[in-house]
Deep mutational scan, measured.
Amino acid sequence: NQASVVANQLIPISTALTLVMMRSEVVTPVGIPAEDIPRLVSMTVNRAVPLGTTLMPDMVKGYA
């Protein structure tokens, strides 16, 4: 089972991601792979991401 990136807090729309905002967790459905966390830092989300939500590729500008 692959770990995915999960929001560690509410991430408001257009917020630049930082390490403290994300954690890795094995979830269903599978989202962005946890090993991509370093790549996600400073990318922005294009929607509000509630606490505990799995980050999907279409939620992060420039990721997909």
Rank of each mutant, 00 (worst) to 15 (best):
I37K: 05
E25G: 08
M59A: 11
Y63D: 03
M56E: 09
T53L: 09
A7F: 03
Q2A: 13
M21G: 02
G31M: 02
V6W: 02
K61V: 15
V20K: 13
P57I: 06
M21S: 05
I13L: 10
P50N: 11
V26G: 05
T44H: 14
V6G: 00
T15W: 08
L17Q: 00
R47G: 06
I32H: 01
V20T: 14
G31I: 02
S4W: 02
D36N: 07
E25Q: 10
M59V: 08
Q9F: 09
I13S: 12
E35V: 14
N46P: 00
V60P: 01
P12E: 10
P29Y: 04
D58L: 10
R23V: 07
N46D: 09
L51W: 08
V27P: 00
N1K: 06
E25K: 06
R47N: 08
I32A: 00
N8W: 03
P29S: 04
M21Y: 04
G62H: 10
E35D: 14
R23Q: 05
V49I: 13
N8K: 09
S14R: 11
A16I: 11
N8Q: 09
T15K: 05
S4I: 02
L19A: 10
T15H: 07
M43V: 04
T18G: 05
P33W: 10
G31D: 01
A34I: 07
E35W: 10
K61P: 15
P50H: 10
T28F: 09
A48G: 09
P12N: 11
M22G: 01
I13C: 15
T18Y: 03
G31Y: 02
Y63I: 04
L10N: 15
Y63N: 04
N8F: 04
A16V: 11
R23I: 09
L55S: 02
V5A: 13
I13D: 14
P57K: 10
R23S: 07
T15A: 13
P50V: 06
A48P: 14
V41L: 12
V41C: 06
A64R: 12
Y63V: 04
D36H: 12
A3T: 13
D36C: 15
L19S: 11
A34Q: 06
L40Y: 02
V45A: 05
M21V: 03
P29G: 03
G52A: 06
L51F: 11
A7Q: 00
R39P: 01
L40G: 00
G62A: 11
T54G: 01
V20A: 13
L51E: 15
P12M: 07
E25W: 05
S24Y: 07
Q9T: 15
V60G: 02
P38E: 10
A3C: 09
T44N: 10
P57S: 09
G52I: 03
S42E: 11
A3M: 12
S42H: 13
L10G: 10
M56L: 09
L17D: 03
P38A: 12
P33F: 12
I11Q: 01
I32D: 00
P12W: 04
R47E: 12
V5Q: 02
M59C: 05
Y63T: 03
D58T: 10
Q2M: 14
L10A: 13
G52K: 04
L40K: 00
N1Q: 15
V41R: 05
T15D: 03
V27N: 03
S14L: 12
L19M: 11
P12K: 07
A3Q: 09
A7E: 01
V26E: 15
A34D: 07
N1V: 15
M43S: 07
A64D: 13
N46G: 07
M22I: 09
L40E: 00
A34E: 08
V20F: 13
M22F: 05
T28A: 15
D36K: 10
G31L: 02
G52N: 13
G31R: 02
V6N: 01
V27K: 13
A48M: 13
P33H: 07
M56F: 14
A64E: 11
G62N: 11
V45F: 00
L17W: 02
A16H: 14
N8H: 06
P38L: 09
P38K: 10
V5N: 03
P29H: 05
V41H: 00
M22C: 03
T44I: 12
A48L: 14
E25I: 05
I11G: 02
A16N: 08
T18E: 14
P50E: 14
G62C: 11
V41P: 02
E35Y: 08
P33C: 10
E25P: 00
L55N: 01
G31V: 02
V60C: 03
V27G: 03
I37P: 00
V27D: 01
I13M: 13
Y63K: 03
T15S: 13
I11Y: 00
S24H: 12
T54W: 03
V30L: 13
V41F: 04
D58H: 09
P12R: 07
I13N: 13
T53D: 14
L51A: 14
A7H: 01
A3L: 10
A48I: 13
A7M: 04
R47Q: 14
R47C: 07
E35P: 07
K61S: 09
S14E: 13
I32K: 00
A64G: 11
M21C: 04
T15F: 06
K61N: 14
Q9W: 06
P50T: 09
G31N: 01
V6D: 01
T18D: 06
S14W: 14
D36I: 06
L10C: 14
P57T: 05
P33D: 05
T53I: 10
G52Q: 01
S42R: 11
